[in-house]
Amino acid sequence: MDRAATAPQEASPEGPPGLEELLRRVARGEEQAFNRVYDLIGPTVYGLVRRVLRDPAQSEEVAQEVLVEVWRSACRYDPRRGSPQAWVMTLAHRRAVDRVRSEQAATDRESRAAAADTERPYDEVAEKATDRLERERVRRCLENLTEVQEQSVRLAFYGGYTYRDVARLLSTPLGTIKTRMRDGLIRLRDCLGVEW
């Protein structure tokens, strides 16, 4: 019996090595073997992925990922479990399906987020009423301050002045203004029932 006829896709002087032999060489890190594998199965991988994904750009990306996986995991190919092409196509199909699932999950998340945003409509009337009530409450609490405290707080918080500016405007020492502000803010906090 002729030995060349029974050898499983070994490299022979007469012809190029088969895909199985190329994968063995890729497993050993031979770049030229990987280039040949890429040329042999790249278009088929892309075709399979494209049928699953339909999007050309995503198909190219996933096909590249599959071929990188072939480069990295060629040592895991087991000829007893199937042909080299079947192994690569299984990797390609799994990766394409994973991408579809990932995209679907992202779409579902976005839909849920959009639905959640629309579930609580903005009520402009309620918002304005709440703002008006809060302003009225603050106004009443400001009236409970001493005149000098109220004057200092209004200049600082409503006028936008710094403590130093308030001291200059009221012709009062800075330390006194700070004391008035501190005491006024404590009284406001107590009146509003706010914890600082």
Rank of each mutant, 00 (worst) to 15 (best):
M1P: 13
M1E: 11
D2L: 07
R3D: 10
R3C: 12
A4T: 15
A5H: 10
T6K: 08
P8I: 01
E10W: 08
A11M: 10
A11H: 11
A11S: 14
A11V: 09
P13L: 14
E14C: 08
E14P: 04
G15L: 09
G15C: 12
P16I: 10
G18V: 03
G18N: 03
G18Q: 05
E20G: 15
R24F: 10
V26E: 01
A27W: 02
R28W: 09
G29H: 04
E30F: 03
E30N: 09
N35T: 11
N35I: 12
N35G: 13
R36L: 14
R36E: 15
R36D: 15
V37Q: 03
Y38R: 13
D39P: 07
D39L: 13
D39S: 15
I41W: 04
G42H: 03
G42E: 07
V45Q: 02
G47Q: 11
G47A: 15
L48T: 07
R50F: 13
R50M: 14
R51K: 12
L53H: 02
R54S: 15
R54Q: 15
R54N: 12
P56T: 04
P56F: 05
A57C: 08
S59K: 00
E60I: 06
E60P: 05
E61Y: 07
E61L: 10
V62Q: 01
V62R: 00
V62T: 08
A63E: 06
A63Q: 02
V66K: 00
V66S: 01
L67W: 01
L67T: 01
V68S: 09
V68G: 05
V70P: 00
R72H: 10
S73F: 07
S73G: 10
S73H: 08
A74K: 02
A74I: 01
R76A: 09
R76M: 07
Y77M: 03
D78Y: 00
D78L: 04
D78M: 01
P79R: 05
P79C: 06
P79Q: 05
R81G: 05
G82C: 05
S83T: 13
S83W: 06
S83I: 04
P84I: 02
Q85C: 14
Q85F: 07
Q85V: 14
A86F: 02
A86D: 06
V88F: 01
V88C: 08
V88L: 06
V88R: 00
M89G: 06
M89C: 08
L91N: 00
R94S: 06
R95T: 05
R95W: 00
R99C: 10
S102K: 07
S102E: 13
E103V: 09
E103M: 09
E103S: 11
Q104I: 08
Q104L: 13
A105C: 07
A105D: 14
A106D: 08
A106N: 03
